[in-house]
Design a protein around this nucleic acid. Structure first.
Length: 406
DNA sequence: GATTAGGAATAAC
DNA sequence: GTTATTCCTAATC
């Protein structure tokens, strides 16, 4: 996935905002949502992502607009990836771009962003040197909670201990795989360079990580650093379990920590195809489909035949629109600003931000050209199938799930 | 101007 | 074959 990037520091014209996806930030709490507005000023210095200078950045709308990835000028950024990691009070946004970088970490420095003369650091080293003091006292707790959930679920899924010092070589490989998760070739290449048990992995410096993988080394080191620090913060609460490998658990991990993912235990999944098995959990996105595929490949020798069949049977599934809408509705803490229940009992919901819902859907289905016009056409296809209908007193952007799909 | 409705062709699975 | 996407016209809010 990551093509050979240039490493020149001069190729750092973009500021952090171009890569922040509000969908990733939202689960971390309202404090972040409110503070991202402060990034607005520094985006004006951005020279490459032209669209960040449009009116959506200039205060007319909520932060979500200018933080959505579709504001990125893809002519300038032909390939990007992004993740958000939290370490104590510092947020790192890892950016990967063909033109920009290998993997750099941009601390999301609230105190600096609120100053008038903020200048983005010109090199990754400067970013690392930034000291952050977050003004919101509640953020640390939010971050710790999010980390706790994620680490707990990842430990369950990978069947590893939370303490990396106790990891075997195989445990460490699982963890690396989890964080690599982009494509099998890349992951295998990197894994060959990190054939260590946990204690040895923890002893490696950032530079040593980078020496072993120019593109991903520092990112992995940061991920491990975050993990180690989070374990300290989380203390003994996190418990490693003996739960068997279940791809659905991966959904829950992502569901709580990154973006919109389904939770099959929450939403009923009525059969709308002739194959019940294919309709029950057809909920992988491309990225985690890949991640699961890679992990499955790695773990094939350790999972049971039943589990392997389960994994394989889930990888080819696709999510239906009505399921996706329900996922959003089931996370009001994150998405009530774009879709929410009007009458939960009767399945009546309203799309508050049609373009955002469409973008989320398009991203999920890897359809960049998705818009509300197309999304709504798909919804209307549900009328005949009695999955979704308009309410009796039809109102704009208000729909209703039919009884079996409530 | 945005939304709604639905036909038709096509793509994706 | 089913579902979703894309494009379209027309009507409505």
């Amino acid at each position: 996935m990551f093509s050979a990037p240039a490493t020149s520091m001069s190729q750092l014209p973009l500021t952090v905002t171009e890569f922040i996806d509000i969908g990733d930030l939202a689960p971390l709490g309202p404090n972040i949502m409110s503070n991202v507005t402060d990034v607005r000023e520094i985006t004006q210095n951005c020279t490459s992502a032209k669209s960040v200078t449009d009116q959506r950045l200039l205060g007319s709308e909520s932060p979500k607009s200018f933080l959505d990835l579709d504001t990125v000028n893809e002519q300038d950024i032909s390939l990007y990836d992004h993740t958000v990691n939290i370490k104590e009070e510092k947020m790192y946004v890892n950016c990967v771009s063909e033109q920009l970088s290998p993997t750099f970490q941009y601390p999301y420095d609230y105190s600096l962003l609120q100053t008038d003369n903020y200048q983005p650091p010109s090199s990754p080293e400067e970013y690392h040197d930034i000291k952050t003091e977050h003004p919101e006292p509640d953020l640390s707790e939010t971050i710790v909670r999010a980390l706790k959930r994620e680490i707990n679920e990842v430990c369950k899924t990978l069947e590893i201990q939370q303490d990396p010092m106790s990891w075997s070589v195989e445990d460490a490989r699982k963890w690396l795989m989890w964080h690599l998760g982009h494509d099998y070739q890349t992951s295998q290449g990197v894994l060959e360079q990190f054939n260590f048990k946990g204690s040895e992995l923890c002893a490696l410096t950032a530079d040593e990580f980078q020496m072993k993988s120019l593109e991903l080394g520092k990112n992995l080191h940061a991920q491990l650093d975050v993990w180690k620090n989070a374990c300290k913060l989380c203390g003994p609460v996190i418990q490693q379990t003996t739960q068997t490998y279940d791809p659905c658990q991966m959904f829950n991990v992502i569901n709580e920590s990154y973006t919109v993912w389904p939770n099959p235990s929450v939403s009923p999944t009525p059969s709308i195809s002739s194959d019940d098995s294919s309709s029950s959990n057809n909920m992988y996105s491309s990225s985690d489909d890949e991640r699961l595929s890679i992990y499955s490949h790695l773990a094939n020798s350790q999972i049971t035949p039943h589990q392997r069949r389960s994994s394989e049977s889930h990888q080819k599934q696709t999510i239906h629109l009505w399921e996706f809408l329900k996922e959003l509705l089931l996370q009001p803490e994150n998405y009530s600003n774009c879709i929410k229940w009007i009458d939960r009992e009767r399945g009546v919901f309203k799309i508050e931000d049609s373009s955002r819902v469409a973008r989320l859907w398009g991203r999920r289905k890897n359809r960049p050209a998705m818009n509300y016009d197309k999304l709504s056409r798909s919804i209307r296809q549900y009328y005949k199938k009695n999955i979704i209908r308009k309410t009796e007193n039809s109102k704009r952007l208000v729909y209703q799930f039919c009884v079996p799909y409530l």
